[in-house]
């Protein structure tokens, strides 16, 4: 019996989610580490770690493709493919980020190179993050991915996860400053609002019921872990005095975990395909056409 209602796609699994998790967090960290470097935070450990996260994401993709030894073919279609564009950006991003981190490291210390390389890495990281958002948007067969409202979610969660890593790193080295908290709070607010808007718009324009059930079912935990939790922890960090750095670190961790859960849910669990539909049924004999059907959808829109 053929399937008619949308069913979960079988081609992208946790490895694809791993690319969006590693790539998003890594690029977010590279962008915010550049900002933090201007405020006096050491860049090199953050830069190295950001590049490693992006690299882990790329390894996940490499593990997923059916013909890994043909991986270089990914560079063949920059004209229209956002996956090719992501690959080109990654080929520049990783060496530039590693160069920036090395040049900023105290045991090498090349400030003339580090200054430009840090910002170039941040620019490439922003491009990489944008490519990731466009990759999902280009997946026309998956209604929960192609919706334009998902793009700001992917970008904002990448930046929020980066801010989470930054806050965590500052807490681990024993520092404490208010501006990373303000930055994290603003990004959390932005991510929370973009997620709400994404769910509302997806429901409004129409989506597979099962995808909506997955997304709506996961939202309370995403909010507790990724939005309300970090906000409360940040408040505690401000009022608890000596325990502040611990709550500071926990807020960063929660912001990261919430973003990772969000992307895992979207990429690996809510990826129900389009299914099949009939705008109307055929006329038989001298009868009239019957009404169409779009089984498994909350409404007959796109």
């Amino acid at each position: 019996m053929s399937r008619i209602e949308p069913w979960h796609q079988l081609n992208w699994d946790w490895r694809a989610a791993g690319n969006f998790i590693g790539g998003g967090s890594g690029t977010g960290l590279l962008i915010l580490a550049a900002v933090a470097a201007g405020q006096g935070t050491a860049y090199w450990p953050l830069g190295f770690f950001g590049a490693i996260l992006v690299g882990i994401g790329l390894v996940c993709v490499w593990l997923e493709i059916g013909r890994p030894w043909r991986a270089l073919h990914v560079f063949y279609h920059p004209q229209t493919s956002w996956m090719t564009r992501e690959a080109f950006v990654s080929a520049l991003l990783l060496p530039v980020a590693l160069l920036a981190a090395a040049a900023a490291a105290p045991f090498i210390h090349l400030p003339a190179i580090a200054g430009g390389a840090i910002w170039l890495a941040a620019l490439l990281a922003a491009l990489y993050l944008y490519c990731q958002a466009r990759i999902l948007h280009g997946s026309k067969g998956i209604p929960a991915w192609r919706h334009p409202s998902l793009m700001p979610v992917i970008i904002l969660t990448g930046l929020t996860e980066g801010a989470g890593f930054l806050v965590l790193a500052i807490a681990l080295i024993g520092g404490f400053s208010v501006w990373p908290l303000i930055l994290l709070f603003i990004l959390l607010l932005g991510r929370w609002m973009s997620w709400r808007r994404y769910l509302a718009n997806l429901t409004e324009t129409g989506a597979p019921n099962k995808a909506l059930a997955v997304l709506n079912g996961a939202t309370p935990m995403i909010n507790i872990l990724g939005h309300y939790g970090p906000a409360i922890l940040m408040l505690l960090a401000l009022v608890t005095g000596s325990l502040g750095p611990i709550f500071f670190a926990l807020a960063g961790l929660a912001a990261i975990a919430g973003g990772w859960q969000m992307k895992f849910v979207v990429v690996a669990r809510a990826a129900f395909n389009q299914g099949f539909a009939l705008p109307l049924t055929p006329v038989r004999g001298t009868g009239k056409p019957g009404p169409g059907d779009k089984p498994g959808w909350n409404k007959s829109g796109q």
Binding site: Q9, W12, I65, R70, A71, M83, I135, S139
Partner: peptide, 16 residues
């Protein structure tokens, strides 16, 4: 011979 089996086309196709 060119395809790398990334599956992007499969998730892009709205006709399964």
């Amino acid at each position: 011979d060119l395809c790398i089996g990334c599956g992007y086309c499969a998730v892009a196709c709205p006709y399964q």
